[in-house]
Amino acid sequence: MPQITIDYSATMENAFDRAGFARALHEATVEIAAAKPEACKTQFRPSALTAFGYEDPGPRGHAVVHVTIGLLAGRGEETKAKLTERALELLRGHVAEAVFTLHASAEVRDLDASYRKFDR
């Protein structure tokens, strides 16, 4: 915990500083949600195709980033909202200006009570 997943359009691969974003987001999660640094884990999942409205999906038209942060239950709505806002703010700084229109979103959710993990 936290479990962080970032889905993004593969067309923005060269414009997205993923390593820098992950580090900054981990720092924000520690600061805002009282997570332990060693508990922060992020997976990036590029999407081969991004469709927007009725437009033909082109290689440079639109790009989408969605950040999902799963935390153990117990954080208040204010904490979750603050972390969501910070995630979006950090995205602005880690995605370079490019020829695509960026659609960014984020959410913080409670992990289900059945959540378990192990380290090896």
Results as ranks from 00 to 15, higher is better:
108 V>Y: 02
12 M>D: 12
106 A>T: 02
77 E>Y: 08
36 K>D: 15
70 G>M: 10
53 G>F: 04
15 A>N: 14
43 Q>M: 09
104 A>D: 09
99 V>A: 13
106 A>S: 11
41 K>I: 00
112 D>N: 08
75 R>Q: 05
3 Q>D: 12
85 E>C: 08
89 E>F: 13
12 M>S: 14
71 L>M: 12
22 A>L: 10
31 E>M: 05
24 A>V: 09
99 V>G: 13
3 Q>L: 12
50 T>K: 01
11 T>P: 02
56 D>I: 15
7 D>N: 08
67 V>C: 10
50 T>C: 14
86 R>M: 11
68 T>E: 14
67 V>F: 06
14 N>A: 15
61 G>P: 02
92 R>T: 00
71 L>W: 05
25 L>G: 00
20 G>Y: 12
109 R>T: 14
37 P>R: 09
55 E>Y: 11
56 D>Y: 03
116 R>A: 14
113 A>K: 08
77 E>N: 15
11 T>C: 13
59 P>L: 11
2 P>A: 00
112 D>G: 07
74 G>P: 10
83 L>R: 02
105 S>K: 05
34 A>D: 12
8 Y>H: 03
72 L>K: 09
81 A>S: 08
61 G>N: 15
17 D>H: 10
76 G>Y: 04
79 T>A: 07
85 E>I: 09
67 V>S: 07
102 L>K: 11
45 R>W: 04
1 M>V: 07
50 T>L: 06
